[in-house]
């Protein structure tokens, strides 16, 4: 029994929607402008979030705070909907 959950399990779990990491600064700027919001206002996702950890493993590098995560949810009201979260370090 391993101490971690297999990243594929996490990413494919039925409760987990599709997460995509966006680290390119320009891309992030573009998205923020299009949405008309500032980064601090967006909801957060922690660096120790199991999905972030799993994605880090797949990418082979650490995902730093400040990156954006694009989440595609199945919505019972709108069909599909895209939301964003900002990667932050968890508070103590």
């Amino acid at each position: 029994m391993s101490e971690r959950l297999d990243p594929d399990v996490v990413l494919n779990h039925e409760l987990v929607p599709k997460h995509e990491v966006i680290e390119d600064e320009e891309e992030i700027e573009r998205i923020l402008e299009e949405l008309g919001v500032s980064k601090d206002d967006l909801p957060r996702i922690h660096t120790n979030d199991p999905v972030i950890v799993a994605l880090s493993e797949k990418l082979g590098r650490k995902i730093r705070p400040g990156a954006l995560v694009r989440i595609e949810r199945e919505s019972p009201t709108a069909g599909k909907v895209v939301v964003y979260r900002v990667v932050t370090s968890p508070p103590e």
């Binding site: 909801p43 919505s75 009201t77 909907v81 939301v83 964003y84």
Partner: peptide, 21 residues
């Protein structure tokens, strides 16, 4: 813009109810 914000201006939902209805 149809977004749900709180008193600290945090965006709780980018679109209310995801479909704004």
């Amino acid at each position: 813009d149809g977004r749900v914000r709180d008193s600290a201006n945090n965006i709780i939902q980018l679109a209310y109810g995801e479909d704004r209805v």
